[in-house]
Design a protein around this nucleic acid. Structure first.
Lengths: 248, 248
DNA sequence: GAAATATGTTGATTTAAATCAAAAAATGGA
DNA sequence: TCCATTTTTTGATTTAAATCAACATATTTC
């Protein structure tokens, strides 16, 4: 098939055509500099269920998620698991404070990634100083999100946790900083993660997650198709519940 | 009294004599450049119980803690509180992802701080590019610490939480990355925060914290002088408990 | 398409930690 | 030093969520 350019051009186009281009750290690199980015990174594809970062392993690479979703988790010796977060398009993974990864990252469905060896990031930062600033913003914003999760895990009820989760899942597609109201609904969202994953994300058991889904359904707050999709019928009410605001 | 230098010199010496000099972000600035740091920052003293950062308020400044300790927390509308962390010497505060602070910071005892308006940090980063790198390291290491707290709040028992807290409080003075063993003990530590603070840090109630302290005492793991100092008699055992490792 | 397996839901019971309730220490002024 | 207040500890009871136990619904395999 005639594409108008050869293999090398196609490789050079990798970043230009990347779905994560505008939301990832790469958005501080100008189009004309993209060949440098292509040269310093490599595309990786990970099949569903495969881990591409292992807790405690030497941290050699950073990753930008360019397709699919991943779960990030940490394990205790007896198997208790805490999901740190769900990574999505554009997320920057691999920030570590020591020389080992702090969590495991596993592909939820098939995942595509851009891999940057630490040495490549060093060179890129040297060449594009704005990238350093962007990386700091990324770390800061992850930090603030994680701090909000401390309140969820330390002080919220099961209902508040699940409401927070649903609102969080709905936010990327809808709200840009703005508060979610009932007028935003009904909002349908895909839930590619299992009940076990949701439970381990929220610090609950699968039974409690399942029961709480059931309650929300009975109360007309959501409707559910199968187990992997939900529609928020009263997103405003869920948002209030998530934040501990009582309505009368 | 003859000091050998005048007021202006004393002001210039502020950073050189600062207790946080070697542990804070300022450790990437060479001694000869300290006057720039002095010029871009101001010293602040905060009496016990006073808040110097307010959740939701416009974020204009960063702070480096140079004396005393502070608690960082977030509130829900009904008063439920989650303590995000306890800040100590050298800690960098005020990283935010939006234009408002994500938490409140309150002095535990009397606290001294160095305040950097955002504009000052911008100028300093411009002049000392290594500072940007240091800020990113700071954000990354805070992120990893916070991620570890997700496991504590989501999956650990009350005993494991208190053990984690005690080990964490002991670590700054003793371990530099190394694992704590019983040979490190007995380790005495000051606990300047109230039981309420500890409870809100660990996602427990004061009663549970108090009872768990009682159990540890009865089991010979710790001894307590008053309520604001504890000695870890079996730090290794506590460390294992904190990490969910069973001993037989 | 049926059997086998995995995943999710619902119900009964238990339990770790919360709540409610005093009592005991500690702290801070007069 | 004593009294008043706050903080902490200890005890009794409750409860939200966990655990234990079927059962139902998907999903996969042959």
């Amino acid at each position: 098939m005639e594409t108008g350019y050869g293999l090398m051009d196609a490789v050079r186009e990798r970043c230009a055509r990347c779905a994560g281009r505008s939301v990832s750290i790469c958005n501080v690199i100008d189009d004309e500099d993209l060949p440098v980015l292509v040269a310093e990174s490599s595309r990786v594809t990970v099949p569903a269920g495969r881990c591409f970062i292992s807790e405690g392993a030497p941290a050699h690479d950073f990753y930008v998620l360019t397709g699919g979703r991943a779960k990030l988790f940490s394990l205790m010796p007896d198997g208790r698991r805490q999901i740190i977060g769900f990574a999505e398009l554009g997320d920057f993974l691999g920030l570590a404070s020591s020389d080992t990864y702090a969590f495991t990252a596993e592909a939820l469905g098939d995942v595509t990634l851009c891999r940057f060896p630490h040495s490549s990031i060093d060179r890129l930062v040297e060449r594009f100083p704005r990238l350093r600033c962007r990386l700091q913003k990324e770390a800061s914003s992850e930090l603030v999100k994680t701090q909000a999760r401390l309140m969820l895990l330390g002080r919220k009820t099961a209902r508040e946790r699940l409401a927070s989760f649903l609102i969080e899942q709905a936010s990327p597609c809808c709200a840009h900083g703005q508060t979610i109201t009932d007028e935003h609904g009904p909002l349908t969202l895909a839930l590619p993660m299992s009940r076990t994953d949701i439970a381990d994300y929220l610090g609950l058991t699968i039974e409690t997650v399942s029961r709480t889904f059931g309650l929300f359904k009975k109360e007309g707050l959501i409707s559910v198709k199968g187990a992997s999709a939900a529609t928020l019928l009263k997103p405003g009410r869920l948002n209030d519940m998530a934040n501990g605001i009582k309505r009368d």
